[in-house]
Amino acid sequence: MKKKNRGILPGFGFTIGCTMAYLSLIILIPLSTILIKTTGLGWDQFLETVTSPRVVASYKLSFSSALAAAGINSIFGLIVAWVLVRYRFPFRKVIDGLVDLPFALPTSVAGIVLTTMYAENGLIGRYLEAIGVKVAFTPLGITIALIFIGLPFVVRTVQPVLQDLEPELEETAAILGANRVQTFLKVLLPGLLPAMTTGFALAFARGLGEYGSVVFISGNMPMRTEIVPLLIVTKLEQFDLPGAAAIATVMLVASFIFLLIINLLQWWSGRYRRTA
C-alpha cells in the first residue's frame, strides 16, 4: 500500500535510512546529552544556576545587544536593499556582492578587525574617543559586532521581494492621487514587512548565539560585558559541565521558540507573496 503512494522512484528506504542515521549520530544524540547532563543537576540546582545574578546579567546583555543590532540592521538593510534594487550608481554590483561578506568571513577575523578599528587608537575608535564615546570593551562594541554579523540577513530577505514588486501597484497608487510617502507607507511597506520581520528574526537569532566576533571586542567583564555563549565557555573551562549544560538548555529552548517563529513568518511571507 505504501509503495503505491510513493510512485515508482527507487531508493526511499535507503536514502531516508541514511538521512535518519546521520542526523541522529551527528545532531540528535549529541544534542540530547545536554538535557541528560542538565537533569543530573536536579530542579532546584538548575533554577539556582540559570537565575544567578551573573547569568541573568548575561541574558539581558545578549538579548538587548542582539535586539539593538537586529533593529539597526532592519532599517539599514531595507535602505541597502532598496538602493541596490531600484537605483543605478557606480560600484553597485560590487556592493551587492560584498553584502555576503559576514557570512563568508570567519568570525574570529571579524572579531579582531572590529576590535582593532574601534579600540582607543583605532581607525574609527580614535575619533569616537575624542568625542567621549567608548566602543571597544563596552556593550556598544558588542552591538557593533552583531550588526556586522547580521548585516546580510535583512538585505537578502528584502531584496527578492522588492524585485518582484510590480510597478503597476505603485502606478495605480500614483494615479489614485497618493504621493510617494503615502505609496511607500500604505502600498509598499505592508508587502515588505513579512520579509523584513523574517530578516530581523534571523539576524536576532544569529546575534543571540554569536561568539567569535564578540569575544574580542567585548572585553568579557562579568556582569558588564559577558554574553551568554561566553558564560558557557567560562563554566566549561572551570569543569562545571552541568552548569554549562543548564545555561545551554535555556539558550536552546529560546532558540527553538525562535526557530518556530521564523518558520511561521516564512510561511506568512510566502503566502503574502503569492497573493500579492
Binding site: 540528535l28 546529552t33 545536554i34 554569536e210 555563549p229
Partner: peptide, 19 residues
C-alpha cells in the same frame, strides 16, 4: 531537524561533544 544547527549557538555545538 536538518535546520537545527542554524538555530544552535556554535558554542553549544562544541559543548555537546565535550559532554
Amino acid at each position: 531537524f536538518i535546520d537545527l544547527p542554524f538555530a544552535v549557538s556554535p558554542v553549544i555545538a562544541g559543548l555537546i561533544f565535550v559532554i
